[in-house]
Design a protein around this nucleic acid. Structure first.
Length: 482
RNA sequence: GCCCUGAUGGUGUAGUGGCCUAUCAUGCAGCCCUGUCGAGGCUGCGACCCGGGUUCAAAUCCCGGUCGGGGCGCCA
């Protein structure tokens, strides 16, 4: 039933490289030769890549070469080239880097069983000269083309090899695309990209633990959120800003969705409330999904081919409908209660509660209007907006996908006297926050924003079961290398 | 931090006190064949996490250590 190893199903082009210039080591990318083979027959090319397989121990040798754009067969004949050179290629180990020069030719078609369709023509390079650029040690700690399952820990220890695997490469291409489409969308809505400091003197939010560091002679910390700085940028009149940058949290969590260093996709906009920025968010996600569907299906084909080899279901991308459902906190509590969960108004909605909600709302959904007592001091509230049990509601919201929280956001408190009262209500001393509250003393626009976990979004999109899969070199409780 | 669980060749696995000089796949090495193409055929190589204990006998049971995995909490 599996077509995993049907060579006709193997995508030969991994990304578009039609605009790439020649480099010192190649005249063409492999992807270009694969795509334009018919027009290139007879022309001389130099390509370079990793040796995926080296077949043939006699007078001919088949070298499957892969670069970042695709793979192609190089055909070597002992009679056609320097004999010792031929020998060095023929005995090369898998994943060695090899450069070949030769002419493009149509491949002889493979033998197919009676009645089987003849595959479309493919092209190869008939090699006249070649060079091993760097030998790969054998055996490989992680097989690049093997179907054997490899544990995540081993993969991350050998990420440089793991990344050579087609589906892993595809995931990181998708990651880049998602950020690109997200940026494009925000820019189209008038947001501008900023960068805020990651070395800070004090906590931007209470609750989370900071990594301490020495800043020359002074105690400092790694930033756990751009929150306060992006607000200051908006107060300063930048109006609509976004940042894609690292955040650091010294929390000893150990789950599939937490890292101690993660990339946060943050926006903040002036003259906006929580509903306004929820709109920005759902439009952005809708745009990302739409663009991915329109442009990047081939990356999913690669991922799904691998998933099939592992007995996993295919991932499919469905563009979510806008607007996303809104399930206000009070309603969410009722859903959990009705579903048999033990929860009271004022309790946090925990993962097992989210499972109950996700049963009704499996996709993206906002949970707005959390109790003010559960939100940080900078979250805005409207006097008189009270929950079903009478407590003050806030204009803070979460975005979940199924059981997983993607985003936390809200309208911010722009009234400095309320801000200071919020601090006191939470047992904090306003004078410790003057670096922040001073920004509000000279006229502050009402504003709102959110922070989105990029890896969590990618996890949803790619079907990865762990954020570590979509983070190049993840930093978790026990991993700081490589 | 809490609960549960695991560690067997390079990788992934089988194994439940003696059938284990340990299974299978992949890999690696060599040979044969070959314009191959998931190449194929043959031969070989390579492992029970560390330390202690129980037992006639330990990959298997117990204790400690180390390192993983799952869940929870917290969060994005």
């Amino acid at each position: 039933m599996s077509t995993v190893h049907n060579p006709n199903a193997v995508p030969r082009v991994m990304r578009d490289s039609s605009e790439w210039r020649p480099t010192a080591y190649r005249s063409h990318t492999i992807g270009e030769v694969v795509s334009n083979g018919a027009d290139m027959v007879g022309s001389e090319v130099t390509v370079a890549g990793y040796a995926e397989t080296v077949r043939g121990r006699g007078g001919v040798c088949f070298l499957m070469l892969r670069d970042g754009t695709g793979h192609i067969q190089a055909f070597l004949k002992r009679d056609n080239m320097d004999e010792s050179l031929f020998g060095s290629i023929q005995s090369a180990t898998r994943e060695s880097t090899i450069q070949v020069t030769g002419t493009v030719a149509q491949k002889r078609p493979p033998k197919v069983a009676e009645g089987e369709p003849v595959p479309p023509p493919e092209y190869e390079v008939n090699v006249t000269t070649a060079a091993v650029l760097a030998d790969a040690a054998a055996p490989l700690p992680v097989g690049v083309t093997d179907d054997v399952h490899v544990g995540l820990d081993v993969r991350l220890d050998n990420r440089h090899l793991d990344l050579r695997r087609a589906h892993v490469n595809a995931m990181f291409q998708l990651r880049s695309k998602v950020l690109q489409y997200g940026r494009d969308h925000l820019i189209s809505e008038g947001f501008q990209e900023i960068n805020t400091p990651k070395i800070i003197a004090a906590a931007a939010e209470g609750g989370t633990n900071l990594f301490p560091m020495k800043y020359f002679e002074t105690d400092a910390y790694l930033s756990q959120s751009p929150q306060l700085y992006k607000q200051l940028a908006v107060l300063g009149g930048l109006e609509r800003v976004f940042e894609i940058g690292p955040a650091f949290r010294a929390e000893k969590h150990d789950t599939y969705r937490h890292l101690n260093e993660f990339i946060s996709f943050d926006i903040e906009g002036a003259w906006m409330d929580d509903e306004d920025v929820m709109g920005v968010q759902e439009r952005m996600i809708h745009h990302i999904w739409s663009e991915v569907v329109a442009n990047d299906q081939s990356l999913f084909d690669i991922i799904n081919e691998y998933r099939a080899s592992q007995g996993q279901e295919s991932v499919t991308i469905e563009v979510p409908t806008v607007p996303f459902p809104r399930i206000p906190y009070c309603d969410a509590i009722n859903i959990v209660k009705a579903g048999g969960g033990e929860i009271e108004w004022g309790d946090d909605i925990e993962s097992h509660h989210c499972d109950i909600i996700a049963a009704e709302h499996p996709g993206f959904h906002f949970i707005p209007r959390w109790p003010m007592s559960m939100k940080p001091f900078y979250i805005h509230h409207k006097e008189g907006e009270e929950g079903s049990a009478g407590g003050q509601l806030s204009r803070g919201f979460d975005l979940n996908y199924g059981r997983d929280e993607m985003t936390s956001g809200g309208q911010r408190e722009h009234r400095v006297d309320v801000l200071e009262q919020n601090l006191r209500n939470m047992g904090l001393e306003p004078t410790d926050f003057t670096f922040y509250t001073d920004g509000f003393r000279y006229g502050a626009p009402p504003h709102a924003g959110w922070g989105l976990g990029v890896a969590r979004l990618l996890m949803v999109l790619t079907g990865a079961g762990n954020v570590r899969e979509v983070v190049l070199f993840p930093r978790d409780r026990s991993r700081v290398t490589p």
